[in-house]
Design a protein around this nucleic acid. Structure first.
Length: 488
RNA sequence: GGUUCGUUGGCCGAGUGGCUAGGCACCGGUCUGCAAAACCGAUUACGGCGGUUCGAAUCCGCCACGAACCUCCA
């Protein structure tokens, strides 16, 4: 059964049925990372959220072009005084080439994304590789009369734009209020109004990353790259633009203004924003210095972490909350997710070995439909997961011989689990130490077979000794009807 | 101050008018030589006060508390 996909559009502040601009094709743009530091849990959230959307859109039959940018220029570090961008600053400190810093962190970002089983986007454009497109974009805005040049820099004229269009429609602001509240801060600026924002910025002498433009030797403004690259790869109008909620204002608001000013029309149909990850109720973020990098999660090397958490645990943890809710981080919450995930994945492995009977005593019909329905309802992954846990119960009961399943139902259940767990939620089994080492596995089997013999002779002392010592080494031993199972 | 959003059981976290998601923890039971795992069962909820309604965690109003954005941020 087909369910219509509905997604929450920040522009209208409600769920809307998703209707693509072009039949069967979807264009989707997501704000990617600024590569001047290691990725943290906050970066994982949009990456995972829009990975789910990418996978789901593909699953329901769309051909999706997914663009996720790399920000490696612009984004001023401090207020107007320095005019130096983040990447340049870091590079000077480290005494390396700016692009070397970019490459280093891009590599690390890709590595982390791969570990989290996030599919690569269709196109991953760098802002630094699209300076010409950005200069053209600035020129279009100037030509349209919505920008002005001031001492080598170009600024967007928000007040003028707002006379014809609605600046603030995305974030619910109005320009008059903003001028009221910020007027006092507006000193001897090159800007006419405090609300105006830079499209092109003249580089200060010490600024390393600079490009030649009609107005000055400089660099593009903070928000321009997304407008320029989005339209370049997805067209003047495309379906979905995503990113974190913190980007709603000013970043996305400015994007709307830029694109509307340059092209004379709305570019994006659906704006989607994932919520923040909090830590003790407060946002986890770079500027707050309370973030935990992904690498620290994977190694457990952070004061707030009681242990290491695998990439799949992190992914599962994030998927257990709806993307529009904040999710509060704690080591205890991660531990709970780890156990839940492990139970789910064991059940999934168990499902593959289940024996079919003539008839089913468990009810598994409708699972696919319910899961599809939850996914199509604004990507409600927590509900999908809850249904999978319901089905897990049936799997375990059949495994224990307390219930039966027909081969048709078994086949369907396998297909549904495979589809949702692997293809859509993107969860995969994580084989830890020892995978692939046959000799090692056989040695453990040998020990456990000796224990089995001891058990048959009712030599509990020997049998418990083997089990206890293996347990102490980190193995988990389970006795089964006709033998044993183990894992580490 | 402005804008937006939130407050659910021991913890995490779904749910938008009636049918009390799910996970983790805890307790009791089944199974087991004992465990582990699995299964069965029990318990604990909707910030406060009013209103609408036959009926509200869910709609409306007020209050309290918290968060995000208004400056780079996922």
């Amino acid at each position: 059964m087909e369910h219509k996909l509905s997604i929450y559009n920040t522009l209208s502040r409600k769920k809307e049925e998703f209707v693509p601009l072009h039949a069967n094709k979807v264009g989707m743009y997501v704000c990617g990372p600024t590569v001047y530091g290691d990725g943290h849990l906050g970066h994982a959230r949009p990456a995972i959220t829009f990975d789910i959307l990418f996978r789901y859109l593909t699953h329901i039959g769309y051909k999706v072009r997914y663009v996720r940018n790399i920000t490696d220029v612009g984004h001023l570090e401090n207020d107007a005084d320095s005019g130096e961008d983040k990447v340049a600053k870091k590079a000077r400190l480290d005494e390396v080439e700016p692009m070397e810093v970019v490459q280093y962190y891009v590599n690390r970002y890709h590595k982390a994304m791969e570990m989290l089983n996030i599919l690569p986007p269709s196109i991953e454009p760098h802002a630094s590789g699209h300076i010409m497109e950005q200069i053209d974009f600035v020129q279009k805005i100037l030509d349209a009369g919505f920008a002005y040049v001031s001492e080598g820099s170009v600024y967007f004229d928000v007040e003028k734009y707002n006379l014809k269009h609605n600046y603030g429609k995305l974030s619910g602001r109005n320009v008059e209020d903003m001028l009221e509240t910020t007027r006092e801060l507006d000193g001897q600026s090159e800007k006419r109004r405090s609300v105006d924002f830079a499209l092109w910025k003249k580089a200060s002498p010490e600024h390393i990353m600079r490009w030649k433009a009609p107005w000055s030797l400089g660099f593009p403004g903070w928000h321009l790259e997304c407008s320029a690259m989005g339209t370049k790869y997805l067209g003047e109008q495309f379906d979905i633009h995503g990113g974190g909620m913190d980007l709603m204002f000013p970043h996305h608001e400015c994007e709307i203004a830029q694109s509307t000013a340059a092209l004379g029309k709305e570019t994006v149909k659906y704006w989607m924003h994932n919520n923040m990850i909090t830590i003790n109720g407060q946002k986890m973020g770079k500027s707050l210095g309370n973030f935990i990098t992904l690498e620290e999660f994977f190694t457990g090397n952070h004061p707030l972490l009681t242990q290491a958490f695998s990439p799949m645990t992190v992914r599962f943890f994030i998927l257990q909350a709806h993307y529009r809710s904040t999710v509060d981080f704690s080591s205890a919450a991660l531990e709970a997710s780890e156990k839940g995930l492990s139970r789910l994945m064991e059940g999934y492995a168990r499902l593959q070995k289940l024996a079919a009977s003539a008839t089913s005593s468990v009810e598994t019909a409708g699972l696919r439909d319910k899961c599809e329905e939850a996914m199509s309802d604004d990507l409600n992954t927590p509900i999908v997961i809850s249904y999978l846990f319901d089905a897990l119960k049936a799997i375990n009961l059949v495994h224990d011989g307390k219930e039966t399943i027909s081969s048709a139902d078994l086949g369907e259940l396998k297909a549904v689990f495979s589809l949702f767990i692997e293809d859509l939620l993107g969860l995969k089994a994580e084989n830890e130490a020892g995978s692939g080492n046959e000799a090692y596995k056989k040695a453990i089997d040998l020990l456990l077979n000796m224990r089995l013999e001891a058990k048959q002779n009712k030599d509990w002392a020997t049998s418990d000794k083997i089990r206890n010592e293996l347990t102490a080494l980190g193995f988990e031993i389970k006795d089964t009807k006709d033998g044993f199972e183990w894992k580490i």
